[in-house]
Design a protein around this nucleic acid. Structure first.
Length: 753
DNA sequence: CGCTCATAAT
């Protein structure tokens, strides 16, 4: 199991505090209703019956329309709304501003802003609520610019906004991420002294958070004099959205100490923070706390707990919760699939990761067999699982399901498909999926650019980047990681620098470590160690473990041990969290015969509580997963596997293969003796040989490896791909290696162990 | 005005 990030949990929750449940909790939504006569109250009638009463034509009370119009919104039925609309006009209820405003709302919620606008235009008695409803409608239908325009019209016509209006305008600003306009609105709010009003303050806090201005969001929150549950919940989610999950937990504790009772929204927000932090201990406290407050029956909260436990590897507890839910909704299924998928991400060096991936696929199958219809969340999660398992066949089946259910055209599902095909090594199918997408987002473009880059297709990656800019999509920092890594692959220093400058100047993106890593990787690949080192010294960020590892890998290949040893000391000072960093150092010191350093690193590893490197590989053949450990002989085909490897090694030697000294991964005690002399069969070699024996001829071999490949295996597999004419794809913990005719898509100079 | 499940990386 991978070590989880350590979390400084802010104190513990005092469980003896006895909160009253907030009145706003949606657990107590039971509204008092029975003043109406059952015969004329449409809530007691069938929707059709109520409608036909209207079609008969007699005038009815305003209150009669309300539930039917509400029903129109819930059913998203425009035609029924039009029937009621006609009736309202015919009977003269049109002058009722409440009803007319409601009609604007109905059309807006049904996505018919044209109709909504018409109702508004034809209604001279429009009041502030009508204006606000129209604006809210535009925001609801993703037209924030029009909402702002309406706001300006309104001010010009001399109508003064209420805090509801301001709320709508601010959501429009959030939608556009328009800091400039939002600040103008903020100025307006201060001018009219609306600032401390609770709902306005909440909206402002949410706005600044969505624009990434966390500091301003917190300030807005702090200025609210009378904070309600929504204020606290908004501030807590703001922490999560801005990478400050820990502070969110602190706010929660503060909230409790101020006697503010959380509701179900607050709890789900807190749980998503716990997920981000893997703070399962904190989550457990919240769990018992929430039971005490009576949130137990709430299925969404139960689902959130289930998801948290699963994501943190507490499979049993999670399953108990899952099994306890009688009426499993799609959200619960999805959370279960996503939970297993996320576990895959965080348990890379364990076989458990693989099992959780296959378990996620099983859950997906169960879902499909039940009568539930999957949605975009189901598909994106399950496609992620296929990616991490490089399960191309299963991925194709899911692809077929997206077509069958009509989700193929969804942009998130489409992006997930592109990503899945890329990760499975099929750049052709990824390209096809990308081209066929009806709409694309930043993420779709970035996925495809990165895909080209990973497959060593630099020109296509850069061309696509230009296409993306021409299409008017603004690249973000991750897009630039893709672009710079593409340049790095091809050794295009000038272009890399040009894009790096473009990123800073034209797009105002502050370089982060990942961008520097690409540049350093580029210099190292070109053998320009000095420039790589100078860049490290020059950066305005503290170099991290990864950067030093890159340099060390370069120094080893180019035999610049002086710089290599220097970099090693810097790396050791950081007390790396990543076990692979220690393995890299051990490999280097072993190769140089520096036994003192070997034991020094070993000691530090023990002190830091870093375990051994777990090397395992797995291969997926026809719905079955086969796993291999290094030098494993327990497999029933072991004899054939070893014979094949021996044969291939001999042939490779005649083609010029020279074995490189390498660390034995799984067994510390024999390292000294064996590394220098005999060949070590790391797990991927066994998996590849097994694949050669069992995968139908001509088909690519796809292997997943728990840790980085070592230089020796990387070299021999290049020869194997040449000797057998097979395409071999190995996804290790760092990147995708696609071997074809003696070449690898990583361009060879990756920081192998 | 707040919420759970989702897609991109060296």
């Amino acid at each position: 199991m991978a070590s989880l990030p350590s979390v400084a949990v802010p104190g513990t929750i005092k469980l003896d505090l006895d909160f009253k449940k907030s009145s706003q909790t949606s657990l107590s939504t039971h509204k008092n209703s029975s003043i109406f006569n059952a015969k004329t109250d449409p809530r007691c009638l069938d929707f059709r019956e109520a409608l036909s009463m209207i079609e008969e034509g007699s005038k009815v009370e305003t209150a009669f329309y309300v539930p039917i119009l509400q029903e129109c919104i819930d059913r998203n039925s425009v035609s029924e709304a039009q029937i009621i609309h006609t009736h309202i006009i015919k009977t003269g209820s049109y002058e009722d501003s409440f009803l007319t405003t409601f009609l604007v709302n109905v059309y807006a919620k049904c996505g018919e802003m044209g109709y909504a606008r018409k109702v508004f235009e034809n209604f001279p008695q429009r009041n502030i609520v009508t204006w606000t409803t129209l604006m809210t409608g535009y925001v609801y239908n993703s037209m924030p610019e029009l909402a702002i325009k309406v706001f300006q019209e309104m001010l010009e016509s001399g109508v003064y906004p209420t805090n509801y209006t301001i709320g709508a305008v601010i959501s429009a600003c959030s939608f556009m991420s328009s800091i400039r306009f939002g600040k103008q609105i903020h100025g307006y709010i201060i001018k009219y002294k609306l600032d401390c009003d609770t709902s306005t303050g909440n909206a402002l806090c949410s706005f600044y958070s969505k624009c990434g201005k966390f500091g301003a969001a917190v300030k807005a929150f702090r200025r609210i004099k009378e904070k309600n549950v929504i204020s606290w919940t908004t501030a807590i989610s703001a922490c999560g959205d801005n990478g400050r999950a820990n502070m969110g937990l602190k706010l929660f504790v503060e909230m409790l100490s101020e006697d503010a009772g959380p509701n179900d929204f607050t709890l789900t927000s807190i749980l998503s923070l716990c997920c981000l932090l893997h703070a399962v201990g904190f989550g457990e406290q919240v769990h018992s706390f929430s039971i005490k407050l009576g949130f137990e029956p709430n299925i969404l909260i139960r689902t959130s707990f289930m998801y948290l436990y699963l994501k943190c590897g507490r499979i049993d507890e999670s399953r108990r919760l899952f099994d306890g839910i009688e009426d499993i909704s799609l959200v619960t299924w999805n959370a279960m699939i996503a939970g297993y998928a996320q576990m895959t991400d965080h348990a890379k060096d364990s076989l458990m990761a693989h099992h959780s991936g296959t378990e996620a696929l099983n859950i997906f199958l169960r879902l499909m067999r039940s009568n539930m219809k999957p949605d975009l969340y189901t598909f994106s999660s399950v496609l992620t699982v296929c990616s991490s398992l490089i399960a191309l066949e299963q991925g194709e089946q899911v692809h077929a399901q997206t077509i069958k259910t009509g989700f193929l055209s969804d942009v998130v599902v489409g992006s997930s498909l592109v990503n899945m095909y890329n990760k499975c090594g099929s750049i052709e199918r990824a390209t096809k999926a990308f081209v066929e997408m009806p709409t694309r987002t930043l993420i779709s473009w970035t996925s495809m650019i990165t895909g080209f880059s990973q497959h060593g297709r630099t020109r296509q990656a850069l061309d696509l980047f230009e296409d993306m800019r021409l299409a008017g999509v603004r690249p973000n920092k991750i897009t630039f990681v893709g672009v710079l890594s593409a340049c790095s692959h091809a050794g295009k220093v000038d272009e890399a620098m040009r894009y790096f400058e473009m990123m800073k100047k034209q797009y105002g993106i502050k370089p982060m470590m990942d961008h520097y890593s690409c540049l350093i990787d580029m210099y190292v690949r070109l053998g320009r160690l000095k420039e790589a080192f100078e860049l490290i010294e020059k950066m305005d960020i503290e170099p991290n473990e990864f950067v030093w590892s890159l340099l060390i890998a370069g120094c080893r290949s180019l035999k610049n041990m002086e710089l290599g040893f220097y970099a090693a000391e810097r790396l050791l000072e950081l007390k790396p969290k990543d076990t692979e960093a220690y393995a890299l150092l051990l490999n280097m010191y072993l190769a140089e015969g520096r036994w003192n350093d070997v034991s020094r690193v070993r000691k530090l590893m023990r002190e830091e509580g870093r375990g051994k490197l777990m090397d395992w590989s797995s291969i997926n053949i026809k719905d079955k997963v086969y796993s291999f450990k290094p030098d494993g002989r327990s497999h029933h085909q072991s004899a054939e596997i070893y014979a094949l490897l021996e044969d291939l090694l001999e042939k490779a030697k005649s083609l010029g293969y020279v074995s490189l000294r390498c660390l034995e991964m799984d067994d510390e005690d024999v390292v000294k003796e064996k590394t220098v002399s005999s060949t070590v069969h790391h797990s991927e070699k066994l998996a590849v040989a097994f694949g050669l024996l069992n995968v139908s001829s001509g088909a690519p071999i796809r292997v997943i490896k728990s840790i980085s490949m070592c230089r020796d295996c990387h070299s021999i597999i290049k020869f194997i791909s040449e000797l057998t004419g097979r395409e071999i794809i190995i996804r290790d913990s760092r990147r995708l290696h696609q071997f074809n005719n003696g070449h690898c898509s990583c361009g060879d100079f990756s920081n192998l162990l």
